[in-house]
Design a protein around this nucleic acid. Structure first.
Length: 592
RNA sequence: GGAGCCGUAGCUCAGCUUGGUUAGAGUGCCUGCCUGUCACGCAGGAUGUCGCCGGUUCGAUCCCGGUCGGCUCCGCCA
């Protein structure tokens, strides 16, 4: 750089700097060559400054500026000048001034970049990912990275103020049963044995509580070898914490304070605490899901009892078989076309609904519906009353198993919310969902599995049910929900060995297997484990919401594609046979 | 494991329904002109494995099958 030192960033210079001699460094965003005067928009991570090469001001430098091209890297020494009358650019933070250049250093050149960086148009994502370092030069992307940094910083500061200490836990650890598929790492020095990358530092943070650490946190990578989604990556970041001698309220209060701080620092938004709370049972009943978006209505209404003995066999037989009939009253939506309704029927079909019954309430209160004829007038009145139906309304019904009814109507509700523009995007709607069931029955495995994880404490009132009615046991788990997205979840943990053994037994884990896989935990629990609990937040998902991104990939510097590949490094890649041999692995795939 | 959408110039896309001349547009790029632009302007120019393989056909960017890649979703994600 020939001894030049940057004096300012490209967003800083204002009217007050006029007359100053400054040095900027950055990339050529655009060059406008007027034959005489040449304008260059110089960009760095913070902004853009117009630099001017005028032959009358400095002929030698002007000549050199002819060669400049997009994304060349420059150091520019010059004088801050006020722009001529009427020439300010209101779209630019530095639009009041420009730099008359005395010295131009070309620090690096570049061929024409493979895609434009000026954000005028969307670019194919795999191209962006292949040249991610170019993509990240775009203001939106660098802003996302910066906001993520600010979020992490605010969280660390807050937790430090609250006596948490950051402790690192192993990335190479042991595979445990339950949960997601593990990423495995083979051990060179232990033939036939494997490490697993952590799905979360769950057991280590519990062991830290037993160690007396009292309050632990970590912003930490977690790994789950499952299929990707717009909001799911195989490696993702958790804000992980654990506290001793606390109950649910203590943890919720700490977590609320942290989220409050996060919003204040990153978006300067004031969030009021405490957050709303809702039990799992209420969330399912009213919204059909455990992470309700409560920014709008369209709640589910239970008609199971109303239609139990009705004339419509589809409904009545579902009820008889123990299923549910629920409805959504889309107020004032009778104007939706048959095509609209068909689209919605197709939409809910992907969630298992075999049909979507509907009724339009006409101006005279009569039903316009394919199923109207199956109901007596009394039944129609009964249903209309339960649903608060009025002329102009559109009623949707799903009758099926509780799981299908809830998922289908929950998704229908969200789709209606989006289509009807019912969601106020400026609102951040935070709530807790509590009292999750501890266990749920897995038909495929023929046993109960943990809804949260196997170390979650059962509700004390329900302890006796652990053996007699495992599905009825409530847990001491809680999720934090933001705008219908689960952003964090945690629980009070089991801190007594005998309770942990009973929980394992309920999960169908034999005492032998428990000893084999979790001996270290059981031993630790009996050596003076304090009551403890914690919570973990998905930092990536939080950042998605804070940046209003559609994809988790937009808040991760180097994300992976849906096939879990990195277009930039071309990971995963083949490895030399020698590496495999050292790891005692014998490939069963064809080598090139 | 399954469903849907997409793949044409460096980039963003049209063309494909109904197969047939030289495959287009905008932008970018190159050259020239231009001293106040800021998505500068004007004139000219170059640029295509129509993802790949196969089939049907006299003839395939277009129809069919397969395959590769990208995205969204279901399953999966304690």
């Amino acid at each position: 750089m020939g001894g030049l030192k940057r004096s300012h960033y490209c967003n800083e210079l204002q009217q007050a700097n006029v007359g100053d001699e400054i040095i900027l460094m950055g990339w050529v965003l655009r060059r406008r060559d007027h034959g005489g005067v040449i304008f260059v928009d110089l960009r760095d991570l913070r902004g853009i400054t117009q630099v001017v090469f005028n032959p009358e001001y400095n002929e030698k430098v002007h000549a050199k500026a002819h060669d400049l091209r997009s994304e060349w890297v420059l150091a520019v020494r010059g004088k801050v000048c006020a722009r001529p009358e009427g020439m300010t650019n209101k779209n630019l933070q530095t639009g009041a001034i420009e730099i008359m250049v005395d010295e131009l250093r070309i620090l690096n050149t570049s061929p024409t970049p493979p895609f434009p960086l000026d954000e005028e148009k969307d670019v194919a994502e795999n191209l962006r990912l292949k040249y991610r370092y170019l993509d990240l030069r775009r203001p939106k992307m660098i802003n996302n990275l910066r906001l993520r940094h600010q979020a992490a910083h605010a969280i660390r500061t807050y937790l430090d103020e609250n006596n948490f200490i950051d402790v690192e836990t192993p990335i190479l650890t042991r595979s445990t049963p339950e949960g997601a598929r593990d990423y495995l790492v083979s051990s060179r020095v232990n033939p036939g044995k494997f490490y697993a990358l952590p799905q979360s530092p769950q057991l280590f943070k519990q062991l830290l509580m037993i160690a007396g650490v009292d309050r632990y946190y970590q912003i930490v990578k977690c790994f789950r070898d499952e299929d990707l989604r717009a909001d799911r990556q195989p490696e993702f970041t958790q804000i992980d914490m654990e506290l001793s001698f606390v109950d649910e309220d203590d943890i919720m209060t700490i977590a609320e304070g942290m989220i409050q701080r996060l919003f204040k620092i990153t978006l300067n938004k004031d969030i009021s605490t405490p957050f709303k709370r809702m039990t799992y049972a209420e969330a399912m009943e009213r919204f059909g899901c455990d992470k309700p978006d409560t920014r709008f209505g369209l709640e589910l209404i239970n008609l199971t009892e109303t239609v139990r003995d009705c004339g419509f066999k589809v409904f009545a037989s579902v009820v008889k078989k123990g299923g549910l009939v629920k409805s959504i009253n889309a107020k004032g939506c009778a104007t939706l076309s048959r095509k609209n309704i068909d689209d919605l029927t197709e939409y809910v079909a992907q969630f298992g609904a075999r049909g979507l019954a509907w009724v339009k309430i006409k101006e005279d209160g009569e039903w316009q519906s394919p199923i109207a004829k199956f109901f007596t007038e009394a039944e129609r009145n009964d249903m209309g009353q339960t649903l608060d139906a009025a002329p102009g309304d559109l009623l949707f019904f799903v009758a099926d198993t509780p799981a299908v009814v809830h998922q289908a109507l929950s998704e229908l509700r969200l789709e209606l919310g989006r289509r009807l523009n019912l969601i106020d995007k400026s609102v951040f709607d935070l709530l807790w969902v509590t009292d999750f069931p501890l266990l749920e029955y897995d038909e495929d495995e023929g046993r109960y599995t943990a809804v949260h994880h196997p170390f979650t404490a059962p509700h004390e009132d329900d302890l006796a049910l652990l053996e007699s009615a495992p599905g009825k046991v409530r847990s001491r788990a809680y999720d934090m929900v933001l705008n219908g997205t689960e952003i964090g979840g945690g629980s009070i943990r089991i801190h007594q060995k005998d309770v942990q053994n009973r929980a394992f037994a309920a999960l169908g884990i034999s005492p032998e297997e428990a000893k084999d896989k979790f001996d270290f935990l059981l031993r630790a629990l009996e050596l003076g484990a304090p009551p403890h609990g914690g919570i973990a937040f998905g930092l990536d998902r939080l950042m998605m919401i804070l940046t209003a991104s559609d994809s988790i990939r937009d808040v991760i510097a180097f994300p992976k594609t849906q096939r879990a590949a990195c277009p930039l490094t071309e990971a995963p890649s083949p490895v030399a046979r020698k590496q495999l041999t050292e790891l005692h692995l014998r490939p069963d795939w064809k080598e090139d």
